[in-house]
């Protein structure tokens, strides 16, 4: 095979190549022996590289393995139920909590808090980001303030919120609102400021008015960053929810968890943890879906 290739490379290039001919000839060392020919490697077609399990299944291997190990440890009594209940127990207590309607009520209460907190915090964060992103006056007034406030750990504000807002729903929602406002603010602001200047210029030559420029160029250009901000916000919303619900809650997943702690019900605690995790996963899935729909235009690397 190698000798065949070497013969080919020694053939004179087609004369139609014109000026390139002398250069090619110079590279084709006429005195090189057959053994000098480079060893050739096969370029693999993509279809052959892909083998084994389809991706969704492959992604499930890790979590399934983890649960399996946990189950084995519980069944063999290496893990005592007072430390951590086994998956089977967790599943049955989840079923009974669902049957009494406790679980659904708790999830609804928690989701309601997260949603209203995110709605308030998101509105504030996005509005401030748009103002300081679009106007220099807004930037001067808002940005330094926001940069200063964002360094305050918002969990540390719980005591103040309790003093100001009591122990009802208000401090919990306020905590989530505060936590979610910052990631959205930072990312939307950065997104607006990173819009490609050449596109803004092109739009100007097309005669776009300022409102049209904002609507058709600047906001769509900031959208990828805004969605990153939304993802961060949802992450911290969950965190803030968990902290908020530890404070005198009378409903919600956190309340369920606090109650379970009183009675050493590790199974119920695990159920609550799983619920938090599942809610997080579902929300993340929704954001991914949103990204796929809203950012379909984006030519981006999607992983090898």
């Amino acid at each position: 095979m190698t000798s065949g290739v070497a013969t080919l490379s020694r053939e004179a290039p087609s004369p139609t190549l014109g000026r390139a001919v002398p250069r090619l000839r110079a590279e084709a060392h006429p005195h090189a022996s057959v053994t000098d020919a480079p060893e050739l490697v096969l370029v693999q077609p993509e279809a052959e590289k892909r083998r084994g399990l389809p991706r969704p299944l492959r992604r499930a291997i890790g979590p399934v393995l983890l649960v399996a190990i946990w189950h084995v440890l519980s069944v063999t009594d290496v893990l005592s139920p007072t430390v951590l209940a086994g998956p089977a127990t967790v599943l049955s207590s989840a079923a009974s909590l669902w049957a009494t309607g406790e679980l659904q009520a708790a999830i609804l209460a928690s989701l309601g808090r997260a949603a209203s907190g995110l709605a308030i915090g998101g509105t504030i964060g996005v509005t401030l980001a748009v103002i300081s992103g679009l106007f220099r006056l807004g930037e001067d007034l808002i940005d330094s303030t926001m940069q200063m406030l964002r360094t305050v750990p918002n969990i540390a504000l719980i005591p103040l919120f309790i003093i100001w807002l009591g122990i009802g729903e208000a401090p919990k929602v306020a905590l989530i609102a505060l936590a979610t406002a910052f990631p959205l603010y930072l990312n939307v602001y950065a997104g607006i400021r990173n819009v490609d200047q050449t596109l803004v210029e092109a739009a100007r030559t097309l005669g776009l008015s300022r409102p049209a420029m904002i609507r058709h160029v600047i906001l769509p250009g900031a959208l990828p960053n805004a969605l990153v901000g939304l993802r961060y916000s949802l992450g911290v919303a969950w965190l803030a929810l968990v902290f908020g619900e530890q404070v005198n809650a009378t409903a919600g997943v956190g309340y369920l968890m606090n109650n379970a702690r009183e009675f050493f019900q590790t199974d119920v605690i695990v159920v609550c943890l799983v619920v938090y995790a599942l809610l997080g996963l579902i929300v993340d899935f929704i954001v991914r879906l949103l990204e796929r729909v809203l950012l379909a235009w984006r030519p981006a690397f999607s992983g090898a």
């Binding site: 092109a202 739009a203 097309l206 776009l208 049209a212 058709h216 160029v217 235009w297 030519p299």
Partner: peptide, 15 residues
């Protein structure tokens, strides 16, 4: 300098 978030014909009529 086309707006990547607009389909081709909307790029043409932008503004």
């Amino acid at each position: 300098r086309l707006m990547p978030w607009k389909p081709v014909w909307r790029n043409v009529t932008l503004g």
